[in-house]
């Protein structure tokens, strides 16, 4: 099936639905938002369980602190905002009030990356993975589609401790069927290949599969790994990819500094040093515009990944 024909759902929608699903099963689930419930989709939970939905208003740092305090009273707490404000503005509250005491707070951050679109650079957070994965004990998840997003939410609720989940505003192709099993700390092969491995996360997983198709038509065999669990990272699958294809490309809708590209190169440098080329936002701020057009402008598409793959192969 062509990518263009596949149904598209934004991961933020899957987040909202999964919260409702969780809320039905567990009355200790409480959801916070900071005046963005309609956009983050926690509004679905608010509608289903108004007594377990808390809006702190536009005060993200305070929201993280309240979420932390509430979690100590035996609740599984989800706190939501845009990635810019959840990871950015509230970084120190997340670090000191949630991360340091290792509290059971799950941060659902939506509108990550430049695919926020028209709102522009002030709201296009491409630094959140870097910030969150540097906090000791923080689990960082970046699902590729609606199916995986739902499973990330359920997995986060299952474990004890802080989790940062990254969701997008833009509707993206549904890549997985219901048989898919997401596991924290594990990546998975979506396509086998011998010349290069594309390790992709989030919105760029679909583009990575398209890139592999394009490369195939040029006689290049590309493997594709989906890496939703950015921390803990699946060292084994990365090492295996480096050994089997001899070079890697990382693909993410995040600054090439500090995100998946960094996480993969950290593993590679210490194990099987092979060429790694990072596809991502190249240390610049975003811009206003339609999301799909922006992704093309910033090279966050199949074409961009193809050229990085060729560059990686050339370095072998």
């Amino acid at each position: 099936m062509r990518m263009a024909d596949i149904a598209k759902i934004a991961t933020r929608d899957a987040y909202g639905k999964a919260l409702v699903e969780l809320g039905e099963k567990n009355d200790k689930v409480i959801v916070f938002d900071a005046d963005l419930a309609a956009a983050t989709k926690t509004g679905m939970f608010k509608k289903a369980f108004p007594e377990r939905f808390i809006d702190t208003g536009i005060a993200e740092g305070n929201m993280m602190g309240i979420a932390a305090g509430l979690s100590t009273a035996g609740y599984t707490v989800f706190a939501s905002s845009f990635a810019m404000f959840a990871a950015g503005r509230a970084f120190e509250q997340v670090r000191n009030s949630i991360g340091y005491p290792h509290l059971n707070v799950k941060i659902g951050a939506t509108h990550a990356g430049i695919s926020v679109g028209e709102d522009g650079a002030s709201h296009q957070c491409c630094e959140d993975i870097a910030l969150m994965r540097s906090i000791p004990g923080m689990t960082v998840l970046n699902p590729a589609d609606a199916v995986e997003a739902r499973q990330c939410v359920l997995a986060a609720a299952q474990m004890n401790g802080p989790v940062y989940m990254r969701f997008g505003r833009l509707a993206v192709p549904v890549l997985f069927d219901d048989s898919y099993q997401f596991q924290i700390g594990k990546g998975c092969y979506l396509r086998e290949g011998t010349d290069v491995t594309i390790i992709a996360t989030g919105l760029l997983v679909g583009a990575a599969l398209e890139a592999a198709e394009l490369l195939s038509s040029e006689g290049i065999s590309a493997a594709v790994i989906n890496m939703a669990s950015i921390k803990p990272i699946d060292r084994d699958i990365i090492v295996n990819a480096a050994k089997s294809t001899g070079c890697l490309v990382t693909a993410e809708e995040h600054n090439i500094i500090g995100g998946l590209g960094s996480a993969v190169t950290e593993v590679i440098c210490e194990t099987v040093p092979v060429p790694v080329i990072r596809c991502g936002v190249e240390d610049v701020f975003g811009h206003s515009g339609p999301a799909l057009k922006l992704l093309d402008i910033f090279g966050l598409n199949a074409k961009g990944i193809v050229s990085k793959a060729k560059a990686a192969i050339a370095l072998k």
Binding site: G65, L70, A73
Partner: peptide, 13 residues
């Protein structure tokens, strides 16, 4: 930050 956590605890109660 502590006061926010205290507020969260009071919400818990």
């Amino acid at each position: 930050q502590g006061i926010s956590a205290a507020v969260g605890m009071a919400m818990g109660a």
